[in-house]
Lab assay of single mutants.
Amino acid sequence: MKHYEVEILDAKTREKLCFLDKVEPHATIAEIKNLFTKTHPQWYPARQSLRLDPKGKSLKDEDVLQKLPVGTTATLYFRDLGAQISWVTVFLTEYAGPLFIYLLFYFRVPFIYGHKYDFTSSRHTVVHLACICHSFHYIKRLLETLFVHRFSHGTMPLRNIFKNCTYYWGFAAWMAYYINHPLYTPPTYGAQQVKLALAIFVICQLGNFSIHMALRDLRPAGSKTRKIPYPTKNPFTWLFLLVSCPNYTYEVGSWIGFAIMTQCLPVALFSLVGFTQMTIWAKGKHRSYLKEFRDYPPLRMPIIPFLL
């Protein structure tokens, strides 16, 4: 059985960083990364991007050496992705923050609204209902991160945790300040508006959870398998008939419901920014589905049925 020789060059300087002799033909890129780490321990596998061309796409960890368009002496180019952190850690951090930050404003801890309001309670029912909904949303997200989601990528750049936390924590503080303010004004149409908004919120939260469970069942634990998601017997998953990412559709719907319930401008802005970002993600995933699966359902749109 022939063996391969693998040289790894710096993608920027073309400097030879490592030479691997007698590499098995069936070795994966993940195994080559581990061998590279032995000579350069500062670059652990998650930091490494190996590619066939200095400006090309990163090879997948599961790619097999003998199936790549290389000879028995293969040249790979290395790029440092920077310090990495696990997706689970990032999600837990960015979701735990809003949960606790919101509660600080809800309980009106000292130095927020003035001494005479310390630890007082709002007289408006919608304020307490909003706290329950907000807390439920982020507790749900935390539990899904721990027990439901299966991540195709193990890590992301460390800098992302600061960007994500600034976004989630900042908006949580902004909306919580106004919703729990002693001078907060309840919704214009009173109980009817709150009940309608609560119904929207609850339905969308159930829908979002149902989609996450359906997506989880598509991917076996520990794998990166991708399949076309289809509706199940659960009615909340029937939205798969019309959109590629109904989890985002339901998520946006939840925040629209919360915005109607609280009639709070920061919540509306958070919903708008979230919708914009999720639309970008949904379009990317939709394109990926179309590219990977020739039999992908043609009627589906990325996030909004028939429109977007």
Rank of each mutant, 00 (worst) to 15 (best):
F100Y: 09
S210P: 03
D61W: 00
L242V: 05
E144Q: 01
K60Q: 10
A11Y: 07
E251K: 05
C18G: 08
S121A: 13
T13N: 09
S58V: 07
T276P: 08
N160S: 12
V23L: 09
A130T: 07
E7G: 09
Y189A: 01
G207A: 07
I32P: 00
G71D: 10
T145N: 00
Y184A: 15
F209W: 00
V252L: 08
K2P: 10
C18F: 11
L103P: 07
I200V: 12
H115W: 10
Y177V: 04
Y95F: 02
Y177T: 04
T89K: 03
N180L: 03
T185I: 13
R141D: 14
L17R: 11
C204H: 03
P98N: 14
H3E: 09
H181A: 15
I85V: 12
M278T: 09
T73I: 05
I256T: 11
L68G: 02
I203V: 10
V23D: 03
P235N: 00
C264G: 10
H124Y: 07
F107M: 04
T28E: 07
R300Q: 02
T93I: 07
V70F: 04
S135K: 02
T279V: 01
K60G: 10
C264F: 04
R219V: 15
M156F: 00
N234K: 08
Q192L: 12
S135P: 02
N34F: 04
G257C: 08
G97Q: 14
E5K: 11
A173G: 05
G257P: 01
F19T: 06
K2G: 09
C133V: 07
Y296Q: 00
E15F: 02
S86D: 01
R108W: 12
Y189H: 09
H181S: 07
A191Q: 03
K233G: 14
M213E: 15
S49V: 03
Y184G: 15
L104Y: 02
A83N: 02
L104H: 12
E251D: 08
A199C: 15
Y177R: 04
Y248N: 10
L146F: 11
H212G: 02
V23F: 10
L50N: 01
A221T: 10
P25R: 02
E31Q: 13
T188S: 12
I303F: 08
T37K: 15
V194G: 14
P297A: 04
L20K: 02
A282D: 03
E94Q: 01
V6I: 00
S223D: 01
W169C: 08
C165R: 03
Y177K: 12
I29S: 05
T120S: 11
T72A: 10
A221I: 15
T13K: 07
E292I: 13
A172H: 03
G71Y: 03
S49W: 02
A46G: 13
G257F: 12
L76R: 01
V273A: 10
A173D: 01
A46V: 07
N34G: 05
L52V: 00
I303M: 10
S223K: 06
S58E: 04
D61Q: 04
P98W: 00
H124F: 15
S254E: 08
L103S: 05
V126E: 12
L146G: 13
L198P: 09
P45E: 01
K285Y: 13
N164Y: 01
P246H: 03
G253E: 04
R123M: 12
V202E: 08
G82W: 10
K22Y: 10
G114I: 09
L17V: 14
Q193S: 08
I29Y: 09
P187K: 09
S223N: 15
